[in-house]
Design a protein around this nucleic acid. Structure first.
Lengths: 353, 353
DNA sequence: CTGAAAGCGCTTACAG
DNA sequence: CTGAAAGCGCTTACAG
């Protein structure tokens, strides 16, 4: 910047104004500044200098679960980020995704290097060391799909009620042999049936709440939770859902219905059923969660819990923007959910097997 | 930092040393510094101040294609990032993913806000405005799966030769009615058969090279390229591959083989074939590209072009680290590829339909 | 083992 | 319409 100033015989401040307050310069001078900059290869003000002076860097950080490998395989997460980036862009804010390590051993030191003005925390495990370190920085922060933390606004859905409705729907249809396919209960990538101890130590708010909702609805109608196998997948993808269903459907007598905690998993379940020659919903009913676009076009179209992921992202972004402006923000915003009944659910087969 | 210094009656420099050069302090003093910091809620040196002074922020940026929505749906991209983050972490460098906008209208202004020491550019479309703006910043940069840019080191594979081998394999088996399922030819998210004009204007290096390889092998053996339908998908996912195959397999006479430019697409093709009751490889041969883990476990296991994505990421990371150190770096590093023949390919059906 | 000084690149009040 | 000065938070030589 000094180079350009010297070259033109003007002050550094004039260069700064050429970029930040064009109206303060005569158009001719501004043109001369930009032309000289181009010529000397000056790419515009260094964001470090600006950031230090302004106390703002113009970027929002997104903290998500360790598992980069799965975080974006779920259309729900992608829709959320798309809504968030819409809100950020509207304010001229950039978005930085702080990646996890695929081995799940992300180093909390990355937090000390983060150059952001605020943070959106999206479905991170309880006690995640990066989360802990980030909270210490006391950035303006919005939580999404997380347990409450005092003083931090939260965006979410009523996971437990939504899950209860989903399970209720199966009960109403007459199902009594129900199994669950769930994404991670903890950050340690377990894969397989989750026993009682495992279920008691769930580290993800969303998993905890949805299982609790399933439990409440089923147990309330004569299906003891201990009779409901819960297959845990280390993420949310069709492949994992398929593998989980392969395990659950090999049991005799087979479950007549499967509740999945995401549509991606549920789509995998549909696929596994088809590969085994089982008819959905004739032999097996399947319920998803999220209502991603693929749920409606699946074969058969998926009964699922609908929520507006993009709206959730936009809302979180707007709340963070308000926080950055020092405006008051409501401590909790719930996005509505709604059970969408399509044709992947029906009464159980008459022979009950 | 000044607060802590004042509180303890020491200089700011001592505080800095407590964090950056612990050995320069007596352990007792260091402990006092850290304790006071904790007490006063000081989270450690502000990375902005450090960055400005050091001329380094300790973070590598990754520029990838506009489409966040698809970038991570492909296991190949995820493996690449995992390799890259391994190399970055080994040097204590953070990784910042600069997200695109899902609508493909990412604003080049984000570049002016990026706080990074260097850049890895991963399969970005020719002329992408963010890429153009980023190159103007003259950060140390490594290109991956991109066309050459003078002065910038490049990591890649010989896409054209690998594609040629894949197509050759089908020719050798006797196939003459071949179709192609390709991921994006341009950043504009088209979906459907790509005519000649579209194929001439391919904006992604990788798509261009692979189509050229298919073309060379097929045309060289009596299968004119104009007879080979190329179905373009706006990304790389199983769903898109399935939809593409549905379109291609509806044609009479049906192709006896499909070449896909990624395994994700090929897995979708397998699924579409199965849903139509077609046997693979009895009725249809399918070839993928990438050899992601799911290729080997697919049903049937997928014939595909194998490349080591994680190694590619590690290599790119190591080259960027060398660049940041001012070390010399070779201008081009190719990762090996190899056609892995599994059981998704065989001779065409005798009746040829 | 600890400190005083300079300066990284920028922008904000305040003058003129 | 343009400028001189101060300072954002830090760390690096250099002294002592």
């Amino acid at each position: 910047m000094t180079r350009i100033a010297r070259e033109l015989g003007v002050s550094a401040m004039t260069i700064s104004n050429a970029y930040n307050h064009p109206e303060r310069l005569t158009p001719a001078l501004r043109e001369r500044v930009l032309a000289t900059a181009r010529q000397l290869g000056y790419p515009g003000p260094d964001p470090l200098g600006r950031g230090l002076r302004r106390g703002r860097v113009g970027t929002i950080g997104v903290l998500y679960d360790d598992l980069l490998s799965y975080a974006f395989r779920d259309q729900a997460a992608v829709l959320f980020l798309s809504g968030l980036s819409t809100a950020a862009e509207a304010q001229g804010l950039g978005l930085t995704l702080v990646p996890g390590s695929p081995q799940g051993d992300r180093d909390a030191a990355v937090v000390g290097r983060m150059l952001v003005d605020g943070l959106v925390v999206y479905s991170v495990a309880d006690g995640d060391p990066v989360l802990v370190a980030a909270l210490e920085r006391r950035w303006p922060t919005v939580l999404v799909d997380q347990p409450r933390i005092a003083g931090l606004p939260l965006v979410g859905i009523d996971d437990e009620a939504a899950a209860r409705d989903a399970a209720h729907h199966l009960i109403d249809l007459g199902h009594r042999r129900v199994a669950v396919v769930s994404f991670g209960l903890g950050p340690d990538l377990r894969h397989g049936l989750a026993d009682e101890a495992r279920q008691r130590s769930v580290a993800y708010h969303v998993s905890r709440a949805r299982l609790a909702g399933f439990n409440a609805a089923l147990a309330g109608h004569g299906v003891p939770w201990s009779n409901v196998p819960v297959f845990e997948c280390p993420g949310s993808s069709q492949e994992l859902g398929r593998a989980a269903a392969d395990a659950l459907l090999a049991v005799v007598p087979r479950p007549t219905a499967i509740l999945a905690t995401s549509d991606e998993l549920a789509l995998g379940v549909l696929d596994a059923a088809m590969r085994r020659g089982l008819s959905v919903p004739g032999d097996l009913s399947v319920v998803g969660f999220d209502d991603v676009p693929a749920a409606a076009t699946a074969r058969p179209p998926l009964t699922t819990v609908s929520q507006d992921h993009a709206a959730k992202g936009r809302l979180a972004g707007q709340m963070l923007v308000a926080l950055l402006r020092g405006e008051a923000v409501s401590s909790r915003q719930d996005v509505a959910t709604r059970l969408v009944v399509r044709t992947s659910t029906a009464r159980p087969p008459v022979d009950g097997r």
